[in-house]
Amino acid sequence: MNLVTVIVTLVQVILFAALAPLLVGVMRQVRARLEGRAGAGVWQPWRDLRKLLGKEPVRARGSSWMLRAGPLVLVLSSLVLAALLPLVTTVAERLVTGDLFVVVSVLLIGAVALALVGLDAGTAFGGMGSSRHMTVLALVEPTLLLAIYALSIPTGSSDIATIVEARLEDPSIIVSPVGLLAMAALVIAVVAETGRLPVDNPSTHLELTMIHEAMLLESSARDLAWLEFGSWLKLGALLGLVGNLLVPWGVATSTDALPVLVGAAAAGVKVLVLGALLAAGEVLLAKLRLFRVPELLAGSFVLAFLAVAVSAMVS
C-alpha cells in the first residue's frame, strides 16, 4: 500500500462516479432514439441528481433512520465496489484485495440496505418491491457464485485482478467454451442484480410491476438522489467488470501515468459501449412475468454449472 496506489484507486472511483450518470444518460438516449423519440439528452441524469440534491426531503410519518441511512449505505457499497474491482488497473498491491466473494458480499450489503429502505415506511408497495427484490437476489446467488467459481479455475484464484490479468496474457481463456458459458451466466446474473430487462423494467410507472422503483416510492430529494446514484454506479461498475473480462485489452497493469490514462479511457469506452448494447437489447425484450424469472435464473445456473463441471474435469 503506497501513495500511488491510493491515487490510482481514487482515480478509478472518481472516474466511475462521474461516468455512472452519463452511462444511464447514454442508455436512455439510445433507447429513446430506437423507439423514435428525441430523448432528454445524455446529461439529463446529471441534471436530475443536481436537482434532487437541492431539494427538501419529505419523509413519511413513522419512518425511521433507515430511510436516511439506507441510501448512504447503498452509495457506499457501490463506491467500495468501484474501488475493489480492477476497472482501470489490475495492479496487485491495491488497498484491499478484490476477492470476488468479498465483491459479492459488498453488492449484497447495498441490496439489503435498499430492501430495508423499501420496508421502512410501512407501505404495501415498498414491501412488495423489497420482497421481490430479495427473492430475485436469493435466486441469483447460486449462479453468481458458480460463475465466479468457473472464472477462478484457470488461475486458481478468486482474486478478480489476477483473473483479468490471466485473460490479458492468454486470450484463449476468453473464447474457450468454458469461458463463454461462465460469461453468459455472469451476464444474466448481472442483469438480474442490477434490475434491468427482462427481470425488472427500470422505466415502469405501474406500481404493481415494479421491483426496484417500488422500493424508492417513499424516498425524495437527497435520499432519492443517493438511491438512484448508488444503483447507477453499481450498474457502471458491474458493466466495467464484464467489459474487462470480455475485452481485457487496455486495462493498465502498472501504476504509471500513461497506462493508467489509457486504462481510464478504455474503461470509459467499454462501459459506454456495453451500456449502449444493453439498452439496444432492452428495446427488443419485454419484461418477464415475475414467476418466470426463476426459470431464466435456473437456465443461467445450468450454464454456470456446466462451465465449472467441464473445466474441472478437463485439465
Binding site: V112, L119, A138, L139, E141, L145, L146
Partner: peptide
C-alpha cells in the same frame, strides 16, 4: 458451492424479513 450460495441468498432474505418486518415499518 451452489447449495452454500442458495443458502446464503435465502439467509439474507430471511433476516431482511425478520429485521425489516419486526423492527422497521
Amino acid at each position: 458451492v451452489a447449495v452454500v450460495a442458495l443458502t446464503a441468498g435465502l439467509g439474507v432474505l430471511t433476516f431482511v424479513k425478520a429485521y425489516g418486518i419486526g423492527f422497521l415499518a
